[in-house]
Computed example of a mutant assay.
Amino acid sequence: MSESAFPRTHAPARPGWVYLVGAGPGDPELLTLRAARLLLEADVVVYDNLVGQDVMACVPAGVERIYVGKKASNHALPQAGINALLVEQARLGKRVVRLKGGDPFIFGRGGEEVEELVQAGVSFEVIPGITAAAGIGAYAGIPLTHRDFAQACIFVTGHLKDGSVDLDWAMLARRKQTVVFYMGITQLPTICAELVAHGLPASTPAAVVRRGTTRAQRVVTADLATLPEAVKAAGITPPALIIVGDVVGLQPRLAWFHPEDAA
Rank of each mutant, 00 (worst) to 15 (best):
E41S: 06
E260Y: 03
A23W: 00
A216T: 11
R14T: 12
L39H: 06
D166V: 03
G102A: 09
R147I: 00
G26I: 00
K232M: 15
D48C: 09
G135L: 02
A240G: 08
H10Q: 14
V196Q: 10
D261Y: 13
F6R: 13
P252E: 01
G163F: 02
G212R: 03
T190C: 13
H258Q: 15
L92Y: 12
R210C: 01
P201E: 11
G135T: 06
Q119G: 14
Y47L: 07
I82H: 01
Y47C: 03
M183C: 10
I106G: 08
H198D: 11
A150G: 04
W17P: 14
T186C: 13
Y19Q: 10
V209N: 02
A42C: 04
V68W: 08
A230G: 09
H10R: 15
E229S: 14
P189C: 07
A193L: 11
Q53P: 14
V156F: 12
Q251T: 08
K176A: 15
Q187G: 11
A233V: 11
H10T: 15
Q187V: 04
A80R: 11
A255W: 05
P143H: 05
P201G: 08
G163K: 06
P143A: 01
V46L: 00
G235M: 03
V55I: 05
E41Q: 07
P78I: 04
A76M: 07
V44Q: 00
F105C: 09
W169H: 06
V63F: 00
L188A: 09
A138F: 00
A120G: 11
A13H: 03
R91I: 09
V126I: 11
A230K: 13
P104Y: 06
L33S: 10
L200A: 09
D103C: 05
A57K: 10
I185Y: 09
E64V: 08
Q89G: 08
M171T: 12
P25V: 02
A11G: 14
K94G: 01
V208D: 02
H75P: 06
E112Q: 10
A225T: 12
V219S: 03
L200P: 10
L227S: 04
G111A: 09
F6V: 15
V244E: 00
G212H: 04
A134E: 09
S203Q: 12
A230F: 07
L39E: 03
W169M: 05
V68M: 05
P60T: 04
G108H: 06
A132S: 06
R91T: 03
E229C: 00
D43L: 02
G158T: 05
E64D: 10
G26N: 08
A11K: 09
L117V: 13
A197E: 10
T32W: 04
A5H: 12
L160E: 00
L20P: 05
C153I: 10
L92H: 11
M56Y: 05
Y139F: 09
P78L: 01
V248P: 01
P28Q: 02
